[in-house]
């Protein structure tokens, strides 16, 4: 019991130190952030999420991309005039806007390996990692903080790692609270919880019904990247995306030509772990098709291509 308590104390002290130290250059250590690998996506965690994407305040996550206050004022007023008066306090103080929207989401980003590898590859793009586990999210946030501090002296206009951030979220429930329709160009789903039991298949991050939400937040031409080391889960994901009328699978050539695929294979923590155990990795990518015309004449059950 005392050992346990010590461990917790050490963790808290360690994390508090990182939080406070604005000059820290040493990366946080995972051992102070470990957490059980599974979370129940159905339970009501004490999550913080915006009521809608318009209410989301991104400014603390991407401080380098916030629209300067003076520029922000005029368009905001225009918005107020056009929008119906909404007496809620949120309308009084709209969140600070960013110069650009988040375009890439890593769903279940874990310890953030992919995020950090993608940051220099897509320096002009805002990338968001979403993770449901509190401690793990904290680790990624601390890691990004330190990386930003390490590169604070960079001469580049947009400092390295200023384009990545991590949030705690249950994406299975709240993805549309963060992203508008067709906002994203890429979604990564890397080594998701396989949920082996049939009873738990509904908890899988890829399912017929959830794919509709991915299709909603992805723009036409956007891509969902999936990778797993579990053959059965791979088949499951391929099967469900293939059945979904809004997605088509990328060919092997297209996959090989995409630099993100290589990064996903090698840079994720799980990917490295699988390599250590010389396991297999299965990749599948799916492109969001163009929006189909409405086809719902009452009673018409013509099959779509």
């Amino acid at each position: 019991m005392t050992a346990l308590k010590n461990k917790r104390q050490k963790r808290e002290e360690y994390r508090a130190a990182i939080q406070q130290d604005d000059g820290a250059t040493e990366l946080p250590r995972k051992k102070f952030y470990r957490q059980r690998a599974h979370a129940n996506p159905f339970s009501d965690h004490q999550l913080i999420y915006p009521p809608s994407p318009d209410h989301m305040d991104w400014s603390s996550l991407y401080p380098d991309y916030v629209v300067p206050e003076e520029e922000d004022a005029s368009p905001a007023e225009g918005q107020d005039a056009s929008a119906k008066e909404d007496e809620a306090s949120l309308a009084d103080k709209p969140p600070r806007r960013l110069t650009q929207d988040v375009e890439v989401a890593d769903i279940g980003c874990g310890f953030g390996g992919l995020l950090i590898a993608l940051a220099p590859v897509m320096p002009q793009t805002l990338i968001l990692g979403l993770e449901i586990r509190v401690s793990v999210t904290q680790y990624v946030q601390d890691r990004i903080k330190v990386l930003r501090q390490q590169n604070a002296a960079s001469p580049l206009p947009q400092k390295p790692y200023s384009n990545i951030a991590c949030l705690r979220a249950n994406t299975m429930k709240f993805l549309p609270n963060f992203f508008r329709k067709a906002q994203l160009s890429k979604i990564f789903i890397c080594f998701p919880d396989p949920h082996f039991k049939v009873r738990k298949h509904k908890q899988r991050i890829v399912s017929a019904t959830l794919n509709s939400e991915y299709a909603y937040v992805l723009r036409p031409g956007g891509v969902v990247y999936t990778i797993t080391d579990v053959p059965d889960l791979h088949e499951w994901m391929v099967g469900h995306f293939a059945k979904h009328l809004s997605f088509e699978r990328l060919t092997t050539e297209e996959e090989d030509a995409d630099p993100c695929v290589a990064i996903m294979r090698t840079e994720t923590e799980e990917g490295k772990k699988v390599e250590r155990h010389s396991g297999a990795k299965f990749v599948a990518c799916f492109r969001r098709k163009e929006e189909l015309p409405y086809e719902g004449e009452v009673g018409d059950v013509k099959m779509l291509e």
């Binding site: 329709k181 017929a208 939400e213 909603y216 009328l245 189909l292 409405y294 719902g296 018409d300 059950v301």
Partner: peptide
């Protein structure tokens, strides 16, 4: 969502 048969489209 759309009506059938495109109910998968949000």
């Amino acid at each position: 969502s759309r009506g059938m048969p495109q109910a998968h489209m949000i």
